[in-house]
């Protein structure tokens, strides 16, 4: 099984040179730490920054420079700053190539639920609905099951939806899976120490299992 860093490392392998990327809060933010040096990308922050740099030094900390997770950040050479309206013009206009975000549930046709648990948690959707409605490529970082062992890869989401048929690829603590255009989870890779049977048992939605499922490499 992978820990959060393992999930982030595996997602980092999916990143293509020259892309503009929006990273969600949590595991997706960690992905930035594992993008290979020869891959050049620009990170977009929906609060109005293109070119998110590493966390600043103590001396460089600036309250007026944060990412969408409200963390203090720095800017890379060639950064640009803009308003929230401009930022979402970039997003809805299809100019951001890849969105990586977390999920509470994903259904076998790629529906995503990640913003609300009725009666319990009301945090709001932030920019997630705009991002998933517009991005061509969406990768989800998530745990395969809940703490009590219930599958989060479902036939149909039980929680309120963030976007319909939007997820393309999922990296969990157990596996890498694609959402097939015709529906269903296509198993691509398994995490070290995880068997195909483990993944079958942890997946409620329709799972397509090829003859050979290689173990992930990093």
């Amino acid at each position: 099984m992978l820990d959060k860093i393992g999930i982030a490392k595996r997602i980092a392998k999916e990143i293509k040179d020259g892309s503009y990327i929006n990273l969600g809060i949590g595991i997706p933010t960690l992905v930035a730490n594992y993008i290979p040096e020869k891959i050049n990308v620009v990170l977009q922050s929906e609060n109005g920054l293109l070119g998110i740099g590493p966390f600043p030094s103590e001396e460089q900390v600036d309250a007026d420079l944060i990412n969408a997770g409200k963390q203090t950040v720095s800017m890379t050479p060639g950064s640009a700053l803009f308003s929230s309206a401009e930022s979402f013009a970039m997003i809805r206009g299809g100019h951001v190539d890849l969105t990586i975000l977390g999920a509470m549930e994903v259904s076998e046709n790629g529906d995503l639920a990640n913003w609300k648990i009725p009666g319990k948690m009301v945090k709001g959707m932030g920019g997630a609905m705009d991002l998933v409605a517009s991005a061509d490529n969406i990768i989800v970082a998530m745990q395969h099951t809940s703490r009590s062992g219930d599958s989060k890869l479902l036939k149909k989401c039980s929680l309120p939806i963030t976007g319909l048929s939007c997820v393309k690829k999922i990296v969990t603590n157990m596996a890498v899976l694609d959402i097939l255009p015709t529906g269903g989870f296509q198993l691509l890779e398994r995490a070290p120490g995880v068997s195909v049977d483990d993944i079958k048992a942890a997946t409620q939605g329709k799972l397509h299992v090829p003859d050979n499922v290689p173990e992930m490499t990093f």
Binding site: E46, S83, S84, A85, S87, F88, I91, R92, M125, G126, G127, A128, M129, D130, A133, S134
Partner: peptide
């Protein structure tokens, strides 16, 4: 949705009473 919020405010200032968005 955050982009809808931003654009609804932008529309208000720009005299555009409504617009279509895929978000939501």
């Amino acid at each position: 949705p955050q982009g809808t919020l931003a654009e609804r405010i932008r529309a208000g200032g720009a005299g555009i009473p409504a617009f279509y968005t895929p978000a939501g």
